[in-house]
């Protein structure tokens, strides 16, 4: 399995598990899609936290595999996995440490909340190997940070630290590395049972900010 799924105190923990950098293979996207369909039918969870196994969130798609097998149908299937994630009525939090690049950043952009450890490094580097983000990263980045900044990060393709991502509005909080899990868990627990996506910003102010300040 390229992902691990556990439930602790009503909170689903989805872990990208393909050490060392949790590359997202076709297999991963298939498993993700299957899991999302399953979760939609489960008894209600309070929240889902996505993280990476080990030191990194994920270095993104397996480029070699992608170049051999990327047809429109496969890409649409991969995209569907992210859409199913987004359509869950359960709030989804990406807890990011280490690298979070390309498709992995796109996965985080489909979550409701993005909390980063201070050591996180993010980016959409596809253009540096003559590709482009293909799972909605362009649309999501433009919506969050505006077109001008999105053009800059996507065409340059360079990586940037969590603090820069925060300044650009691409992530919601940057916390000390050692507190990432605790804050993500506490935030997930604090979220209202009847969470709706329209309450995103209110939840950030009401729950994440105070946690950030106290822990």
């Amino acid at each position: 399995m390229t992902l691990q799924w556990t439930v602790e105190q009503g909170i689903g923990r989805l872990t990208l598990h393909q050490p060392p950098s949790n590359t997202m293979t076709m297999e991963f996207f298939r498993e993700l899609q299957a899991l999302m369909r399953e979760i939609a039918l489960l008894k209600p969870l309070k929240a889902i936290i996505i993280s990476g196994s080990g030191r990194h969130f994920s270095s993104g798609a397996d480029i070699d595999e992608l170049l051999v097998s990327a047809d429109h149908q496969t890409m649409l299937e991969n995209y569907r996995a992210l859409v199913l994630l987004e359509q869950l009525t359960i709030p989804v939090i990406s807890a990011v440490r280490g690298v979070c690049l390309g498709s992995a950043f796109e996965l985080a952009l489909f979550s409701d909340f993005r909390i980063c450890a201070a050591d996180a490094v993010l980016g959409l580097p596809e253009s540096t190997f003559n590709l482009m983000p293909g799972l909605g990263g362009i649309q999501r980045a433009a919506a969050l940070t505006g077109k001008a900044a999105a053009i800059g990060i996507i065409l340059r393709g360079d990586t940037f630290p969590a603090e820069d991502a925060l300044r650009m509005g691409l992530v919601d909080a940057v916390v000390p590395k050692r507190n990432l899990q605790m804050i993500s868990m506490a935030f997930a627990t604090a979220l209202p049972v009847n969470f709706v996506k329209a309450d995103r910003v209110i939840c950030l102010h009401k729950f994440l900010k105070p946690l950030h300040a106290t822990i």
Binding site: L66, L67, V68, A70, D71, H72, M75, L76, Y79, F129, N130, L131, M132, P133, G134, L135, G136, I138, Q139
Partner: peptide
């Protein structure tokens, strides 16, 4: 927009391959 994005991506992937 999404459908277009994946199409554009696949065309680039083909070129790069």
């Amino acid at each position: 927009a999404m459908a277009e994005e994946t199409k554009l991506f696949c065309s680039l992937a083909l070129d790069e391959a």
